[in-house]
Amino acid sequence: MVRIGVLGLQGAIREHIRSVEAVGAEGIVIKHKEQLDEIDGLILPGGESTTMRRLIDKYEFLEPLVNFGNQGKPIFGTCAGLILLANEIVGQENAHLKLMDMKVERNAFGRQRESFEAELVVKGVADDFEAVFIRAPYIVGVGPEVEVIATYKGNIVAAKQGHYLCSAFHPELTDDHRLTGHFIEMVEESQRPAATV
């Protein structure tokens, strides 16, 4: 059974753990950087990206998180987690982990009253995925290595780059665990001896 960490600084942590357990993996809340050694894959949950970044800096998580990704260990970012993964953010000089070659815009769909749910096609995962968007970002541009796996009204809302996965919506807020399941498969894949990244 693979061990999946959920970065536990702030946000929808419990829901991701529930989703990870629902697809038969072990879920661990990561509060200290030392715990990153104990896990095979990591989820960056939704929450407030500015708050998370402050706590990431405060507890010196930035470098260990980047190293975790560079070791070939899979990372899945949802909403705020997607923002953390991007190497460019509209209107901001600095990005965060810069692990995925994409440019993102925060709160791109608007404020809370514009938050919505919609059914999406997520390539390789589902044709009818119930996606919940909350003050969600979207991806405004991607590099050649990034595969777009879902769009909504022409905007990119989920993508994959090697062992990195991200979504602007919140799979953890529904009982549809197929996207989490897809991530667990990516983690299992990364553990097979042949799969060097």
Binding site: G8, L9, Q10, G11, A12, I13, R14, E15, G46, G47, E48, T51, C79, A80, Q112, S115, F116, E117, V132, F133, I134, R135, H170, L173, T174
Partner: peptide
């Protein structure tokens, strides 16, 4: 889901 989910994102904060 959208309204409650917004509050879920604030957890631990």
């Amino acid at each position: 889901r959208v309204k409650r989910g917004m509050a879920e994102m604030q957890k631990g904060g």
